[in-house]
Design a protein around this nucleic acid. Sequence first.
DNA 1: TGCTGCGCACATG
DNA 2: CATGTGCGCAGCA
Length: 564
Amino acid sequence: MRFSNIMTSMKNKDRILEAIDQLRHRKARPDAQRICNFLFRKYSINSAEAKSDLQWCVDNDIVLRVEYKGNISYRNAAKKFSHVKREREHQGDSKSLPFDGNKANRKFAQFLMNAFGELIVDEPDYLEFGVPGDEIIKNILSKDSVRYTKKYITILLEKEVENGGLIKLENGNYLMGPMEAEPSSNTGKMSEKDDINHKRYPNGNFSGFMHKKNLVSKNEEFKRHNSSSDITESNSLNNLRVGGRRKRAKKVFDPSDNNVPKKRGRPAGSLNKSTIEKQLARLSDESRPESRTSNSGSQFGVCSVCHLQNKKGPNDKLVACRECSNKAHYSCLNGDDMMLKMYPDNTWQCPHCKTCVICFETADAGSLIVCSVCADAYHAGCHEPHITEKIKNGNKWLCTNCQMPDELEITKIESNMTFSRKPSIVNDEVSSDSSLSNTNYQSLQSSPSALHLSPQNGANGRESPDQDQSDSKGFDSEDDLNIDPSIPDATHWTPDEVYQYFTQYFPEEAKVFKEQEIDGRSLLLLKRLDVLTNMKLKLGPALKIYKHVVKLQVRRDDPKLYWL
DNA sequence: TGCTGCGCACATG
DNA sequence: CATGTGCGCAGCA
């Protein structure tokens, strides 16, 4: 796919996910037709583009294409993510999710192989002690930091361990597992269907979280009937009912049922006796979080935080927990109580359902500490390093993914860059691997002038006449050698040039650079918090943008700088 | 007419 | 039996 197409697909990704969420919310089947419809209505995206982007999302495991009740549905893969453990528990096995031939998975397997190859060459001891996960992550991120994140790779590694492709040693390091001649299939009886439908029903990492039967329909007839169309299944969908659901008799309106509050929708009288009984039973049991379909509270939109049913403002909406049916006002979330924090993708896990991202256990297995940036929750013992300090509710805590090492504060980065002009310091034994060493940091403290902005190679940031005379070729420090010439020097960029740069990666979010009139020098001064909070960006893009900012600031693409 | 909300039957484990 | 899903109906703009 051409670069520009990838960019539009990425942009439409969120819209497609939004469409799926929206359709699921109103209990409509998220099929291609409805998704396209939604995109057209809301974003004027034509059907062809919507379909190709949907396909792109499927190919990239952002959206799952599943068959359910004989028809095709699309699922938000991210929302299936937290069901990993539950699915595994229910299925009672851990090897039913093979790392199969799915394109994205193959790609990851390739990255993994390369990473092992390179790392073992560098450090033959890894053959004996295994390769540390961090090194694998670092290696893969250095190759593709757009598609992968630390967390994502961690999860993929775990999956690979389960599938036998990797072996996790007792010390936590990894070794490549035995190569399988052919990937184990989900079921023994899948062969023909698999051949026909493999591309259409990629059973990759994410789809493994789905019910297996969703992916492998019992309904051969339907599939054959439908196999000629890829995404455009809607025609046959309309003509062929497979679910066999019968039309039910109309309910007689019973005025005595009018005590059920409802904004709109079907009249309360349409409830049948058993439903009413169930509801009455549930009303007496308000303490536990209810399931999506068996929920009196959520059904009527009661916020589980403030317990108010009504919206708190014209724009306030109820956000449903992605595990159960607990809901909360948008405005009630992201407050001081970290357990009520939303994820950057605007999804939410209520305190009952919130799970540790390492062990997937809930707070039942020990109190969870929630990162105030990414909203990931950890048990104190699961987080690396272990959390020893007492973190009170409401106190800000950053997980290791979001922590900003002191060395990475921009002023210190500047000092590091300034230091390249100080041969006496350059000559110190500095670990070139650690881009910002203590020595550099000390140079800042001992040299107030280092606070002047003089990023990148000294040629751009000269500040004293004698240095002006200096020849840039003279900067032979390790840091200068580490500068990646493919990363542009942004020092003298105009706000427009800054905007242009970010537009190619973040066409939507780049506007903020224009609005804020951020020129090259300002860009090089940006701090992490500026990008994450002050620019009013969504956290996901903000983190990615910050990565680029750091890259431009240090002119090096070292994942350590932004992922440590 | 098309979008939305949702009860409840069905699918699945 | 519990839970996820979405059909088909009703209300609404």
